[in-house]
């Protein structure tokens, strides 16, 4: 059910844990400028949009109502909740909540008309473009000979389909790829019985499998690379040894060979970091970066390389 945008919409919760309610309330508070409208929080019986856990009796009751828009919050291993207007997976990410709240007002007629697009190139480039495009987070469906084989949904951080075919060879083979943008509702119905996985983690897994055998960001050895955003270190398995590398490449543009020299990483290790960050849209070629778009520190506080080396040495030896 799509709530009337003329009337005041409000949000209610049915069967959610308190930290999940906090996340949703927090999105309303910290992203008012990115929401199509900020809604009040109300008791479920008075709300027009309900975030519901289908595993609870309150959630089930909400799903039976026809007068509200229901966003189901469920675990990834549970089958897609069919009675819901939208579905989000745990753990709840604010960005997913934000996208979901903005989808409420997209009536079916306003949804994108599926449009087939054909692009020649390597698959990883298409995946990367879809993931890195913040201006369009609609899911895509990749097809082969008219048959869908992969659904990529960046807003929900999901990838579904014949994931066993998503290997190095497939990633790197130059081909003509046919894909179309679909609504989240359509995406949820396509390949629903196939394997599903978190998108971000899957891209990093591919980067690890690839090791140092390819440079997804291109073979131009003079090209400058730079981190546009920090990777999510809790997902990437890249702990301490990559922290320094990202710090350096976040501030300065380097060629790969310069980056290798400055960071002290072996080439295969550096390529895992760069390929993973490239696939997830965190690494850019320097010409792509929007200089000045974000606040980066500008003052080194009077410190020099020798002092920094001594701080590092004292900390590690203290």
């Amino acid at each position: 059910m799509y709530p009337d945008t003329e009337s005041n919409q409000s949000i209610g919760f049915a069967g959610l844990a308190s930290h999940e309610k906090n996340t949703i309330e927090c999105v309303q508070r910290i992203y008012p400028h990115r929401l199509s409208s900020v809604r009040d929080i109300a008791e479920p019986h008075a709300a027009s949009i309900i975030f519901a856990d289908p595993q609870t009796s309150e959630g089930q009751a909400a799903l039976l109502r026809s007068d509200v828009y229901v966003i189901a919050i469920q675990d990834r291993r549970q089958p897609m909740e069919q009675g819901a207007d939208d579905v989000l997976y745990r753990p709840l990410r604010p960005r997913a909540v934000l996208d979901s709240l903005n989808r409420v007002e997209q009536r079916p007629s306003a949804a994108l008309t599926p449009k087939l697009v054909s692009e020649s190139g390597e698959l990883h480039q298409i995946l990367r473009n879809v993931i890195a495009d913040d201006s369009n987070r609609q899911p895509i469906v990749l097809s082969e000979q008219g048959q869908p084989w992969l659904v990529v949904d960046p807003a929900r951080d999901r990838i579904r389909g014949h994931l066993e075919h998503l290997n190095e060879e497939r990633l790197l083979t130059r081909d003509r790829h046919v894909f179309n943008r679909v609504t989240p509702e359509e995406a949820s119905r396509i390949l629903e019985s196939e394997q599903e996985a978190p998108l971000y983690r899957t891209m990093w897994k591919l980067a690890y499998e690839l090791g140092g055998r390819a440079r997804l960001f291109g073979n131009d050895h003079t090209a400058l690379i730079k981190f546009e955003r920090w990777p999510n270190f809790s997902e990437t398995r890249v702990a301490g040894k990559f922290l320094r590398a990202v710090s350096l490449i976040r501030h300065n543009s380097f060629t790969v060979s310069d980056a290798r020299m400055k960071t002290g990483l072996s080439e295969p290790a550096l390529l895992v970091l760069l390929n993973g960050s490239w696939l997830t849209g965190e690494l850019c070629l320097d010409s792509e970066t929007e200089r000045g778009a974000s606040k980066v520190p500008s003052k080194p506080g009077g410190v020099n390389s020798s002092v920094l080396a001594r701080i590092r040495s004292r900390l590690s030896g203290a």
């Binding site: 320094r244 350096l248 300065n252 400055k262 080194p300 410190v303 920094l308």
Partner: peptide, 8 residues
């Protein structure tokens, strides 16, 4: 590392 990057 962030300071090193700034110095650099």
């Amino acid at each position: 590392s962030l300071n090193e990057a700034l110095v650099m």
